[in-house]
Simulated scan of single mutants.
Amino acid sequence: MTGEDAEAALPADELQEPAIRVRGLEKSYKDLQVLRGVEFDVARGGIFALLGSNGAGKTTVIKILATLLRADAGSVTVSGVDVACEPAQVRESISLTGQFAAVDEILTGRENLVMVARLRHLPGAGAIADDLLERFALTEAGARRTSTYSGGMRRRLDIAMSLIGNPSIIFLDEPTAGLDPEGRLEVWRAVKELAVQGATVLLTTQYLEEAEHLADRIAILHDGRIIVNGSLAELRQLLPAATVEYVEKQPSLEDVFLSIVGRAK
């Protein structure tokens, strides 16, 4: 049976089921209410950006989705599995890359990848490492200690490590935080590669340009709620085009973000 035949054999409701479904998500830390009924869906495949300022609650959402934190209220399913009821099953289909590269600086790039593959009891750890080094343009640096890597190289290696075991859903929490412009571009290329390979990517970011450049859909998280959610084209329709020297100028994501967040205050 071909991939298309197998897909055609699936029930229509299963085909349409989102990779991630979030409903009524609430979370407080003592008297501080961080999430106030967050709701969104992430379709299978492609890149979904959760955009918001520092302290908006983006990392809290990611931690709940990745089973690292329990919500106070609401429901979350990942690949159709409830994260609160069956966290172990959820973890089998996801990977999480945090805000700081989790690489061992004493080891080489290749040794980091081999170590993770062996910890996951996968056969052919060396071949897995070599394939990922090639995919993320790190082959020449594979024999070097990661302490010699640039910030962008470390993040690319970190993302490569998260792919070991072929997770279908990848969470990237502020993947370019602290990187210089060159490092950010390196990571952007790596993130696009994930989508090309068929993974579903949910990334959090406070960088408007990053969301605009990478995401198929963008949700803006503000004051604990999703205040807008759509494609870049749909978000741009929320503001009228401006005319500058007789040339129509479409609003940027920055224009939309500042307008929407300003109205929500």
Rank of each mutant, 00 (worst) to 15 (best):
E140N: 14
S95T: 05
A71W: 03
L65I: 04
P240E: 08
S93P: 01
A101W: 03
R236E: 14
A84L: 12
D72T: 09
Q237W: 07
Q33Y: 01
G45M: 04
L253S: 10
S95Q: 03
S28F: 05
R184G: 04
S95L: 00
L163K: 10
R145T: 06
D5P: 00
P175E: 02
S252K: 08
A125C: 04
S75A: 15
E174V: 01
D72F: 09
S252C: 07
S75N: 13
E193Y: 11
E182V: 15
I170Q: 04
L194Y: 08
G152W: 01
G124W: 07
E209H: 12
V61E: 04
F100M: 00
L68N: 00
L185G: 05
A242N: 10
K249D: 07
C85T: 15
P167G: 09
F171D: 01
D13W: 14
A219K: 08
L157P: 04
Y29M: 04
T200Q: 06
G230K: 14
M115S: 07
E7T: 12
I164D: 04
I47Q: 07
R44K: 15
R36D: 04
I227Y: 06
R155T: 00
N54M: 00
K30F: 11
K58G: 03
R217I: 08
Q206C: 03
L258Y: 10
V247Y: 05
A190M: 08
R225P: 02
G45F: 06
L138H: 13
A125S: 10
L214Y: 07
T2Q: 11
R145D: 01
V244G: 02
K249C: 12
I218G: 09
E134K: 15
E212H: 11
Y246L: 12
D13E: 15
G198I: 11
K63T: 04
M1C: 08
R236N: 13
L239R: 07
L238Q: 15
L51K: 09
K265Q: 11
D104K: 02
T60L: 03
G80D: 09
P251N: 09
